[in-house]
Computed example of a mutant assay.
Amino acid sequence: MSGHDDTHDTDCDIVLSEVYLYLDLECSEDRRTLIQKHLDDCDGCLREYGIEHEVKALVSRCCGDEKAPRELRDRLRVKLDQLEVQVETREFLP
């Protein structure tokens, strides 16, 4: 599952690192299509994605009504913006 082999156009590590962006609909349609194609073709990543999806659903059910304090949300937005800039400078997917 880890790494890149000839059976996949996209590296498994890259797909799994972007699974949350995919789940949260926070990536471009092109990226979503590439990730979905990889998940459709790769049993190992699909299993991992299933686990990620279940964890996200569980957290949502258990903590869905709670809101983070405003200061925490603001700090997270700043960190995510910084991370987004770093990710955009790398060439992850073809």
Rank of each mutant, 00 (worst) to 15 (best):
S2Y: 12
S2W: 00
H4L: 13
H4V: 06
D6N: 07
H8A: 05
H8I: 02
D11K: 05
D13C: 13
I14K: 08
L16A: 01
S17P: 00
Y20G: 05
Y22S: 05
L25M: 07
E26H: 10
E26S: 13
C27T: 07
S28G: 07
S28P: 08
E29R: 09
D30E: 13
R32P: 01
T33M: 06
L34F: 03
I35Q: 03
I35A: 01
H38T: 01
H38F: 06
C42A: 04
C42F: 02
G44T: 07
C45T: 03
R47C: 05
E48R: 09
Y49W: 04
G50M: 08
H53T: 10
E54D: 11
E54K: 08
E54G: 04
V55R: 15
A57T: 08
A57V: 01
V59F: 12
S60T: 10
R61Q: 10
G64V: 00
K67R: 08
P69G: 07
R70W: 12
L72C: 08
D74E: 15
D74S: 12
L76D: 09
V78W: 12
K79G: 00
K79M: 11
D81R: 12
Q82H: 10
E84Q: 15
Q86H: 12
V87F: 12
V87Q: 12
T89Y: 07
R90Y: 09
F92C: 00
F92H: 08
F92D: 05
L93H: 09
L93E: 04
P94C: 03
